[in-house]
Amino acid sequence: MDIQAYINSGVLELYVLDRLSPDERRQVETYAEQYPDVRQEIEEIELALEEYALLNGQLTPPPPTALTAVLMALPNTAAAQPSATKDDPPSAAPPPRRPNWPLWLLALALGMALFGLYYFYQQAQSRGTSIGELQQRFTTLEQDCERIRDNNQENRQQLALLSDADTRGIVLAGSDNAPDSRAVVFYNQQAGEVLFSAANLPAPPTGKQYQLWAIDANGPQDLGVLDEELTSDTLLDVRFIPDAAAFAVTLEDAGGKPSPDLSQLQVIGEVPAAP
């Protein structure tokens, strides 16, 4: 049996068109069960005629009155068919809709856009975090920089003072109480400035503090107590006393005293006479 020849004979077309004798019809149905090709061909012929009929049907829309009439003629499904209502409550799912391509595409695009938004949001978040960190570091550096600049300015001023021709460097030598102690005072009568450096002062005993004095015509003038942790490399800017004759450091009780206990004199040095 040549199936292709059978298909080409046109008998399947007449089968679908319902123009065969009952014998021929049964034969076609037997072949359709045996040969998938025959089944497939019949289906395609059906589809072509279906398409043709639907296209032709566009020209002959059914009268709307027909729909009204048949709907009226329908048995009342809810009341007349309790079994159907049991299986299908009135609020049964709406009829399945055919898939809507543009809608799916739109949904897909929307999903991608949302994902993109989320992605960029995350990126922005992490960038915001790192910007915050950088800003903090920048602020720290700025503060460091400011401090160093102030320091530098101070150092330059001190250096300018130290290199001034009118500045006298006075070494305060150790007294009998502390023969090895040393301190240095830089005194500039013209600029009105005094710098003090504890070149070699041992740490004071507990409860004691060094106190700096300037001695002028009126006797010792208090210039303040020294910090316990004062190091030898620090140059202290201290109060200026005009026409000072000498500078001295005594060891006093913590907090200092209004007048010096000269028995506790540590270092002393005289201001050399102006040239």
Binding site: Q58, A92, P94, P95
Partner: peptide, 25 residues
């Protein structure tokens, strides 16, 4: 599916989608 469910919507669907073609035939 609608027809087998004996749903009135089945009649509407039949009318809307195939009414013209059947009317034509």
């Amino acid at each position: 599916e609608l027809l087998l469910r004996k749903d009135e919507a089945g009649m509407r669907y039949l009318f809307d989608h195939y009414g013209g073609a059947l009317n034509n035939i």
